[in-house]
Design a protein around this nucleic acid. Structure first.
Length: 517
RNA sequence: GGGCCCAUAGCUCAGCCGGUAGAGCAGCGGCCUUUUAAGCCGUUGGUCGCGAGUUCAAAUCUCGCUGGGCUCACCA
């Protein structure tokens, strides 16, 4: 092994560890009792009037405290030193003074490295510069850090190392810790919000024998005993609706989905999604609830409703715009009216807007082979959606509910009463990104059978991302699914929005990376 | 998968019209018993991502490879 500088630094620390073993017995003791967090210790230095107590008052009170945490910085004077100690709640300065601690404690302090986990017992006091600190009476090293930490001022910058060694990122980058705390608050907020509204949380299978609930390419795995291939789920939707049939009228699941697709700053192969279902509600009810959820969450977690995201000031405080697909196309893409009815007209108009010709050809073929009287209209609308993605999405900066999607691309949604080629569905867009997808659920089993068959036709025509025919799901619908609305919200993207993160990798603790070496 | 960019000390970064490697932080030694990115003096530490090529000479120029970032495509 080549002698590198890093090894030298590690060796020096290992030597200190060895000395610690010799002078102190156990190098990794586990008998130091911490009864309070640093935040609560700090609170004890605050008087009843909310002001920090004076040094005289503190000395008179002789408040005994014990704190434990990671030593983040040391200012040493030889015979005295200040050590910045951090635990989960806060940081606290510790003063180790040769005259004030026992001899063993001072010996231990001499073996301290930045990054070590320490335990301190002492009294509260205020330094000359006014900082509440702990004057150590005893000082211990509870766990030695054998590796040097990144630089204290710039932290760890390299994006790959921050993701591969998230533990180091979290030690040295305050904002990284804060992002993940916010993520956790978001998840808790949603749980509380739904629990208050009488929803119950469930866990449905992650391994699916049949692909369904979304259009995406799956990961495939294999069960040895059953000797069957299984898909890691791309969505929990069909299981959750089975539960509504079963009587769980308000149900949700917030957990991972897996999609075997590319990476981007908004896509990770495994990502967290909430899906919720509410019986006797419509997609319009969910729109209202979603708006309220986003607004109240921002207020609760951020204390404001305007957030900076992808270079925009996103205002979550105003009512979200509601934009039907066709209206968006008229506004942003000069859609000719016949494009909404006639497949060929849509096709020609679409090509002008640079939709993918191959995908469009598949749509045209699918409907040329069909005898459905609505075929022309469905075909036209499916192509309209392609144009929508090319032309309208980029304008959707402020929160916008896009509504009235084509039935042809919504195999699980209820048709609109006013127009059977459209469905009662919305997607929420913020800063041109999709944040949620919701619809009134299709609960007519005959219609659902037809939709599944249409998916199979699409697959035969060349579409690689179709749902599979799920007979048991049809059987469940035959037992009667109440009128129900359901919604999925991407939690990672929501965390990006609430933390102002540009990349999904900044809000996932351990994003997927190529394996090391 | 295409295009552009990046890879130098443990970390953050200079050096890049070729001449044999620098700073700050961290570390080590010394001074310092109230510091706040402490200070002062001294000092260790590098296969310049990997592999070829051009050249008397490559961190620097060329090509390939690996890993990463941004972006487009695919995709929600």
């Amino acid at each position: 092994m080549i002698e590198t500088s890093e090894n030298t630094l590690i060796d020096q620390r290992l030597e200190k560890l060895q000395k610690l073993r010799e002078v102190d017995g156990a190098a990794y003791p586990n008998d130091f009792r911490v009864t309070e967090s640093i935040a609560t210790v700090r609170a004890r230095g605050i008087g009843p009037d909310g002001e920090q107590l004076s040094n005289e008052a503190l000395e008179a009170a002789a408040i005994q405290v014990s704190v434990a945490g990671r030593a983040m910085a040391v200012n040493s004077f030889g015979k005295a030193a200040f050590i910045r100690v951090r635990d989960r709640s806060d940081t606290m300065q510790v003063y180790v003074k040769k005259d004030e601690v026992d001899e063993m404690s001072f010996t231990r302090f001499k073996l301290l490295d930045i990054g070590d986990i320490v335990g301190v017992e002492g009294e509260l006091f205020v330094t000359r510069t006014g900082e509440l600190s702990v004057k150590a009476k005893s000082f211990r090293i509870l766990s030695k850090s054998q590796r040097p930490l990144p630089e204290k001022f710039h932290g760890l910058q390299d994006a790959e190392m921050r993701q591969r060694m998230r533990y180091v990122d979290m030690i040295v980058n305050d904002d990284s810790r804060e992002v993940f705390r916010t993520r956790t608050r978001i998840i808790k907020y949603i749980r509380d919000y739904l629990d208050q509204r009488d929803f119950i949380e469930v866990e449905t299978p992650m391994m699916h024998p049949i692909l369904g609930g979304a259009n995406a390419r799956p990961f495939v795995t294999h069960h040895n005993t059953l000797d069957v291939d299984l898909y890691l789920r791309i969505a929990p939707e069909l299981y959750l609706k089975r539960l509504v049939v079963g009587g769980f009228d308000r149900v949700y699941e917030m957990n991972r989905n897996f999609r075997n697709e590319g990476f981007s700053n908004r896509h990770n192969p495994e990502f967290t999604m909430i899906e919720l279902y509410q019986a006797y509600a419509t997609y319009l009810d969910l729109m209202d609830m979603t708006e309220d959820l986003f607004q109240s969450m921002a207020r609760d977690i951020l204390g404001k409703t305007v957030v900076q995201f992808r270079g925009h000031d996103i205002d979550l405080g105003k009512p979200f715009r509601r934009l039907p697909v066709c209206e968006g196309l008229r506004e942003y893409a000069d859609a000719p009216e016949q494009a909404f009815h006639d497949g060929r007209a849509a096709y020609e108009w679409g090509l002008k807007h640079r939709i993918d010709r191959k995908a469009a050809d598949i749509v045209m073929k699918k409907y040329q082979d069909s005898r459905d009287p609505n075929a022309q209209r469905n075909c036209a609308l499916e192509i309209c959606m392609m144009v929508f993605e090319e032309t309208v999405e980029q304008h959707l900066i402020q929160p916008t509910f896009v509504t009235d999607f084509p039935a042809a691309i919504s195999p699980l949604s209820r048709r609109k009463d006013s127009d059977p080629t459209l469905v009662d569905r919305f997607e929420l867009y913020v800063a041109t990104n999709e944040f949620g997808n919701a619809f009134s659920e299709l609960n007519d089993p005959q219609d659902q059978e037809e939709r599944f068959r249409a998916q199979m036709v699409a697959k035969a025509a060349g579409d690689q991302e179709t749902m599979e025919y799920d007979e048991d799901y049809i059987r469940a619908l035959q037992y009667a699914l109440p009128p129900t609305a359901g919604e999925g919200i991407g939690i990672d993207r929501l965390a990006m929005l609430m933390t102002g993160s540009d990349s999904i990798r900044d809000v996932i603790l351990f994003p997927m990376l190529r394996p090391e070496k």
